[in-house]
């Protein structure tokens, strides 16, 4: 019965930050177990939309329903994992101390800190102080914290930024594996080649959704060879339409 409820349902969402509209009437749904990509240039509202999903953003209008409950409800706080674009881990603690703390807060199993450290490939750095990690390692530590407690929804803001292609490949394999186990993922990126790995894509620009489709549908509908071209096509189409 519950499985018919989409993992994420957003309707008429409007957010204003600093007097400027950042999200204008955004609506979409994501079924459970799917990988949803948020793609768009920097400043298009991806991060704000993700903040709405985890319930830390003040919203002007619209509804955000996550796993059947209003976003940010107390009941969701162990069921939703969030990793921010700017790593939010303690620079003066080791990787393991960070995971132990966030794990304790989430009442995750005691074995979880070691599991997530392995999953993001930081096993060799578990006792290293986070402040001394490289940028890519820091990003993975940040991602690891979101995996604690096996949340049903993962909201990941640019999780693969600054990673070499091999690591990116490994992380996407992990995301697909999580999705196969029933986890829903919302992943933002500004890299088009990552967009092709998602089940569904939201192409965003200036606080609006330009397209909501699978990568394949997008290239077919626009008659373009790749997603970059599809994105451009959609922007031109939007500019020409009277709206």
């Amino acid at each position: 019965m519950m499985s018919f409820v989409p993992a994420v349902a957003v309707a008429g969402l409007r957010v204003v930050r600093g007097g400027k509209p950042v999200l204008r009437d955004v609506s979409f749904e994501a079924p459970r177990g799917s990988v949803l990509g948020l793609i768009g240039p920097s400043g298009c509202g991806k991060t704000t939309l993700m903040r709405c999903l985890v319930g830390v953003q003040i919203v002007q209008a619209g509804t955000v329903t996550v796993l059947g409950e209003p976003a940010g409800s107390r009941g969701l706080r162990r069921r939703v994992g969030y990793s921010t674009q700017i790593p939010a881990v303690y620079a003066d603690l080791t990787v393991r101390e960070n995971m132990r703390y966030f794990g304790a807060v989430l009442r995750a199993p005691r074995t979880d800190p070691d599991r997530v450290i392995e999953e993001v490939g930081l096993g060799d750095h578990r006792d290293q102080v986070v402040g001394t990690l490289s940028g890519g390692q820091l990003n993975r530590a940040n991602l690891a914290a979101a995996l604690l407690g096996e949340p049903e929804l993962l909201v990941l803001d640019e999780p693969t930024v600054g990673l070499d292609p091999v690591l990116r490949e490994e992380l996407w394999a992990l995301f697909r594996e999580l999705s196969a186990r029933g986890t829903t993922l919302v992943v933002s990126s500004h890299v088009m080649d990552e967009a092709g790995r998602t089940d569904r894509l939201l192409l965003m620009r200036e606080g609006e959704i330009l397209a909501d489709a699978s990568p394949r549908e997008l290239t077919e509908r626009t008659g373009t060879a790749d997603l970059d071209a599809a994105f451009l096509h959609l922007i031109h189409e939007r500019a020409e339409s009277p709206a």
């Binding site: 985890v54 319930g55 830390v56 940010g72 107390r74 706080r77 162990r78 939703v80 969030y82 921010t84 700017i86 790593p87 939010a88 881990v89 303690y90 620079a91 966030f102 807060v105 989430l106 009442r107 914290a145």
Partner: peptide
């Protein structure tokens, strides 16, 4: 400013 408070506010803390 470091975002850790925001992360904690998405958890049962």
């Amino acid at each position: 400013t470091g975002g850790t408070l925001e992360r904690l506010m998405t958890t049962p803390t």
